[in-house]
Amino acid sequence: MENNPIFFADGADSEMIEAYQKAQQTFKYFWREQSWEYRRIIPALAVSCVKVAFSQKDPTSESPIIEHMWINDIDFDGDYVKGYLINEPNELTNIQVGDYVEVPLNEISDWLFAITPATKKSTGLSKLFSSSADPLPKVYGGFTIQKMRSDMLPAERKDHDSAWQLDFGDVNDIEVVYEQKEKPENLIEHPMSRNMKEDFIKFLKEYPDEMTNADENGLTILHKETIAGNLSSVEVLLENGADRNLKANNGKTALDFARQLNWEHLIPVLEKNN
């Protein structure tokens, strides 16, 4: 992505500000998908990145220099989005490609991931004479990009999409989870969370200490599965005795994170007997 052209837009545009807000409100779905991607043996995401506004003081103006650029290798602790810059700044001198950045969730301006649609494998003559190209990875999220695409002429939009080599679809129909229309239940829980439930039960039986281990932020596995919105995993953890009252270093319980990220399907589960 670092070789893709940068498209500029008016950050004061009310529709662009609305795009920022939608990206922040739905980021939890990005993180849910990204957290499962880190567990996959075979990667599923063709692209996965978050857009952040970077700034520095402009000596020639009262207004700062602001550039919205993308970071990848994303991590998220429920409060802060972290990653590495993958764009070359145009004017900013206080940051460069490869720098590690960490920003509050309410300061991101966009996110996207893309998944290549599953296709039936052709064999024999049907494969030999097939003229259809492989489908481009389908984009999820990308609110600011869709706002910019909506302002482009058809030829400009075509050039834009060609530069990204991604299927952005309809500017007025932004999806946030895989197979959102075909399987609306995916908005509630990631299919891998449901499908991996039995394996997760076995994992906890073999490694019960994992329920109390915490990372450098004080996040336990219950915190992390809550942040990722994984209902089946949270239920299994609680059924196996995970302490819902444990607090991370910032003083937050799993329930606090569920409320903060508005994971409505997790809140009543974590509130029960609390």
Rank of each mutant, 00 (worst) to 15 (best):
L238Y: 05
A258Y: 05
L112Y: 14
I108A: 03
I74H: 03
V234D: 03
K158V: 06
I66M: 04
K252Q: 09
M152A: 12
F30S: 07
E225M: 07
P208V: 08
S193P: 00
N230K: 04
E239A: 15
F54H: 01
D99Q: 01
N90A: 12
H160R: 14
L246T: 08
S130F: 08
K205M: 04
W36R: 03
S162L: 09
Y178L: 11
Q56F: 00
W111T: 04
I41W: 03
G229N: 06
N245S: 12
F54V: 03
F54Q: 01
V171L: 09
N249S: 11
G83N: 03
E2C: 07
F143E: 11
W263R: 15
L85G: 03
D243M: 07
I221L: 12
L266H: 03
D159T: 13
N274Q: 13
S193Q: 11
I74S: 10
D209M: 04
E62H: 05
I86E: 09
P117I: 07
E264D: 10
N230H: 12
I41N: 09
A53I: 08
P104Y: 00
P191R: 13
E189T: 08
N249G: 09
V234M: 05
L125M: 11
E235K: 14
L112T: 12
S48P: 00
N249C: 01
K28F: 01
G241D: 10
E198I: 06
A118H: 11
E107Y: 04
A53V: 11
K224H: 03
K57I: 11
N106L: 09
L153E: 14
S14R: 06
N213P: 00
T253M: 10
G124I: 07
D13A: 13
T93D: 02
N245A: 13
E235S: 08
F168N: 09
M152F: 15
F7L: 04
M69T: 04
V103A: 00
T116H: 11
G141K: 08
D159W: 10
A254V: 05
F30N: 10
L187W: 10
E88R: 04
N274D: 14
R40S: 11
W164K: 13
V52I: 15
L45C: 04
T212S: 02
T116V: 15
K247D: 06
E182F: 02
F129W: 08
P191M: 05
L266C: 10
F143K: 06
K247M: 14
Y100L: 05
M16R: 04
D199H: 08
I71T: 01
H68E: 13
W164P: 03
M1N: 04
N90T: 12
V176W: 07
Q180H: 08
I66H: 01
A155N: 15
P104I: 00
S150E: 15
K28Y: 01
A242Q: 02
L45I: 07
I17C: 01
K22A: 11
M1S: 12
F203I: 06
I174K: 09
L187I: 10
Q34Y: 12
S35R: 04
S126P: 03
V139N: 09
P137E: 11
S232D: 14
Q165S: 15
T226V: 10
V101P: 01
D159G: 09
S232I: 08
V269S: 07
V101F: 01
